[in-house]
């Protein structure tokens, strides 16, 4: 499985899908996050592999 982590929440998706599909599946707007894997930024078309841990960094701030 692929694990996606946003703040203190964890999500799991099946391997083989793109990052964009994974974000759509877990209902996260691609515009609102930056995805990193092993410290490197990855893009929407990246195919996620079994065992991947993707850290999602929220980009929205303000008040």
């Amino acid at each position: 499985m692929v694990k996606l982590v946003l703040r203190n929440k964890e999500y799991e998706v099946k391997p083989g899908m793109t990052l964009l599909s994974a974000l759509q599946k877990i209902n996260i707007l691609p515009e609102s996050v930056i995805a990193t894997r092993e410290g490197e930024m990855i893009l929407d078309d990246e195919i996620l592999k079994d065992g991947d841990i993707v850290k999602l960094i929220a980009v929205i701030s303000g008040g």
Binding site: E31, S32, I34, M41, I57, V59, I60, S61
Partner: peptide, 10 residues
């Protein structure tokens, strides 16, 4: 905002 996050990370 996304670009600034990317800049800071990079």
């Amino acid at each position: 905002e996304r670009e600034m996050t990317a800049y800071s990370l990079a």
